Simulated assay, not measured.
Amino acid sequence: MRGKWTGPDGAEYNWKDMLLLLHVRERVEVFASYEDDELKADVIIINGQRFVGGSAMSYKLRMWVSLTPFVLWLITGITGTILLVAPLAAQFGLTLPVSLTDTLHTYLGFAFFGLSFVHIALNWSTMKAYFRKLSS
């Protein structure tokens, strides 16, 4: 709960403010990740109101840099499958848009590759924790 928190209204709260928001018998959900050998709260939901750890900008950036590579991976997989089956489909008289698919596959593959590095950089502390867990 240390650090800054961004509330649903965009206002920033410190840990003391967050503690003042907690009351007995309220519903509280905490979403945490494991970093540097300790649990770190990423999102706290108090009575349906969502509070995000860190600034809203860093959270939104991390969210988009996580979701976009997934979508690119999905499209690259689909276009790769089309390129793989296109010769077989041609034998059965089915014409697939190979030129467009090849272009999409190439450029989206480069975008996926580049965003993967940004994703790793933004989540480097979590990656280090994973590797430490593997080596112990």
Rank of each mutant, 00 (worst) to 15 (best):
V30H: 05
T68R: 03
P87I: 04
A41R: 02
D9H: 05
V43R: 08
Y34I: 03
F31N: 10
L19N: 05
Y13F: 14
R27L: 12
T79Q: 05
A11G: 13
F51R: 00
Y59L: 02
S58H: 04
L83W: 08
R50D: 05
A32M: 07
T68S: 09
V30M: 14
G77L: 04
A11P: 00
L21S: 03
G10L: 10
A90I: 04
M57W: 15
V98F: 04
L20C: 05
I78F: 10
D37G: 06
I75A: 06
T81H: 15
Q91C: 12
A11L: 10
D9K: 13
R27K: 15
T76Q: 02
I78T: 03
G80W: 09
A89K: 03
E29H: 01
L88C: 07
T101G: 02
Y34H: 11
A32Q: 14
Y59F: 15
S58D: 15
W64Y: 14
G54M: 02
M63V: 07
W15G: 01
L72D: 00
S99Y: 09
S99H: 12
F31H: 13
G54Y: 02
L39A: 09
L61Y: 06
E12D: 12
N14A: 03
L96N: 00
D36L: 07
V28I: 15
M18Q: 01
T76C: 14
L22Y: 08
A41Q: 05
H23E: 15
A90V: 06
T76N: 11
L19T: 03
R50W: 03
F51H: 07
L88Y: 06
F92P: 00
E38G: 13
R50E: 13
T101R: 06
L84T: 12
Q91H: 10
Q91N: 13
R62Q: 11
W64C: 08
V98E: 06
T79N: 07
S58T: 13
V85D: 03
R25Y: 14
P69I: 05
H23D: 12
E35Y: 02
W64I: 10
S99G: 04
T68C: 03
K60D: 11
R50N: 03
R62N: 15
T95E: 07
A32F: 12
I44Q: 00
G10Q: 05
T79C: 06
S58I: 14
S58R: 13
R25D: 14
H23Y: 08
D37W: 01
A11Q: 15
L39P: 08
V43M: 06
T68Y: 13
A86T: 13
P69S: 12
S99E: 14
T81N: 06
T68F: 09
I45Q: 09
S66Y: 05
L96H: 00
L74C: 10
D36E: 14
I46E: 06
F92D: 05
M57I: 13
V65M: 12
A11H: 08
L74I: 13
P87W: 00
F70R: 14
L84E: 09
P87T: 04
L96D: 06
V98I: 11
G48V: 10
S66H: 10
E35F: 09
V24T: 08
V85L: 03
Y59K: 02
L39I: 08
G48N: 05
G77V: 02
L22V: 07
G10V: 13
P69H: 06
R25C: 10
L88G: 02
F70P: 04
M63A: 14
E35A: 04
Y59M: 04
M63N: 11
H23F: 11
E26Q: 12
R27S: 12
